[in-house]
Every structure is written in C-alpha cells, then in structure tokens.
Amino acid sequence: MRKWILLLAVFLAACTTKPSFTSENVYVGTDGVSLAFTKNSPPAEVFENSIFPVGIEIWNKGAYNVEEGYALVNLDQDYMEPGEFTGSTSIFPSDASKLDFQLMGKSEISQQGDRDTIGLTVLTKPIDILSEKHTSTVSVMACYRYQTFASPNVCIDTDPFGIRENKKSCTVSDIPLTGGQGAPVAVTKVEVKMLPSKSQDKVVSQFRIYVKNMGNGQVVDASKVADACSSEGLTKSDINSVSVSAQLSNGIVLDCIPKREGNGGLEGYLRLKGEDYVLCNYEEGVPMELGTFKTTLNIALDYGYMHSISKDVTIRKSAVI
C-alpha cells in the first residue's frame, strides 16, 4: 500500500512540474569583463629563485562580444620576471606578460557569457641578503573595447500641444533605465521632448540621453585600448571618452551633440564626469499623419574599459643548507 502511495506522489509531482522555457533579457546588469585569480594562483607565499603560477580567469559577463581585449600582468621587476603563458600565446614576443583575448558576451543561447582561464609562470629572483622575506604585488589589468546597447520604447506624439482631438495610445514621458544594459557604462535615463517643426505638418523629437560609468573600472577612448595596456600610456583626452550614437525606429539616425572635436558626423561625444548627457534630435521631423505611437530609441555607446585586480605575494628566503 505504501509503495502505491509513494508511486502516486512521485507521479503527481512529475505532472505538476511542467518543463518551461523562458526567454531572459541579456541586456541587463553592469558587468563587463571580470577578472579573478584562480585558487592559490598566485600563492600567498613563495620562495626566492623559484617558479610559481599565476592563474587568471577572464569572464565576459556583459552582453557585448569582446573582439579586442588585452590582459597585462604587472610584476615587481626587481623580484619577479615573467615566464611563459600556458594555454595561450602572447602576440607580443618581447612582452611576455601581455596577451590578447576575444570572448563572446551573454546571449539568448549562452546566458552566462564566455570565460577563459590563462596561466602565466613567474620566476622569483633573489631577495636582499639581509632580508628574510619580501612582499611584492602581482596585478593583472584588462583593457578591452566594449559597447552598450539600450533600446527603450519611447512615445512619439505628433500633436504634443493637444490641438487636434484624438485618443492617444501612449503619453510622452521621461524614461528611467535602471539595472544597466549588460555593460559597465550604462544609459540611466532618457528625457523625451516633442518640439514644433519649421514645417507645420511635422514634429521634431528630441532626446536627452544620460550616461554613467556604473562599473568600478576606468573608461578610455575606444581606439586607445591597446595603449591602455602598454607602456605607451594615455593622455588626458583619452580618459572618460565615450562615443554616443542614437537611432529612432528602424534606421533613422539622430544628430547628437556635443561632438568630438573635428568630427562632422552625427555621433555624439562625452567626457564622462559622473553622470553626463548628450542631446540627440531628429531634425527632419516625424509626419503628423502618423499620429501617436510607440517606437524604439536605439542607443549605442562605444568606449574602451580597463580595470585591474591585484594580490600580494610574499617571497621568502630559501633555506641555506
């Protein structure tokens, strides 16, 4: 009898739990590429004149595919020198501590994003004769080109003053965007305004797009990513530089200001200071005959990003026998 009850309970449980397939929006979160040392790599203590591994996990937790990424391992050159990368090949033979990487971001198929683990062998040098130990820092810096895509649904009202009577399917309003879009630099708010056009049968739509660095790294110019992870260094104008482009509906490119100096295109340009904004207009105007409707505002931010992790390693003097 008990067996039958048990079987029935299992059967009911199986029937009530229906398999479900849910579609997850991957354009959320404020993570980009994350770095982490693997367990005990590097170890907390090593001996002089020895070898130890540095294991680095690079994980693309954002929604953009990294095609140009660099990882640079910084060592205290007086006490350590890099050996070889294991599991990967440096494209810089003269700079054995730097390599490049490409990692796919989150997608509907891979909702976690791609990750890779690389290893670098490090050789310790002798410490001072009079010292029993010396503490050095091993740091890893990642520099990569990234993009943020935000596509809020906005309301276009071709009769903003209500001169003509009709029912409207949406109301023009500002749109707060919380939680990020799957990248460290995020669009935080979009302010929408409808302005009269010079031609009486159209309305100009204007969007104020607010951008903020939500991650704990540094924003750099997208074209300076390789320099960021090298001895070349960056100039002041390379820091906090973000290009902003916006499209309304399916392919209507908006004109954004401010612009990069010397750039005559429609793209906007930001020197991020906390939260900053660009102003984008559709100057040609939306025809009034389209009435009031919702559409997508497709915003793309193009930038480079760099951040680092570090760990202290204590080098002990070898026992003299």
Binding site: N153, S169, I299
Partner: peptide, 17 residues
Amino acid sequence: GDLPLGTAVYEPTLIFY
C-alpha cells in the same frame, strides 16, 4: 521585420478606431 539591435522587446499599444 527585424527588431533593432539591442531591442529585446517592443511593446506598442495598438489603437483600434
């Protein structure tokens, strides 16, 4: 057609007159 890149969902309110 194709949704714009980065658009996970488009939610218009259709109005029938």
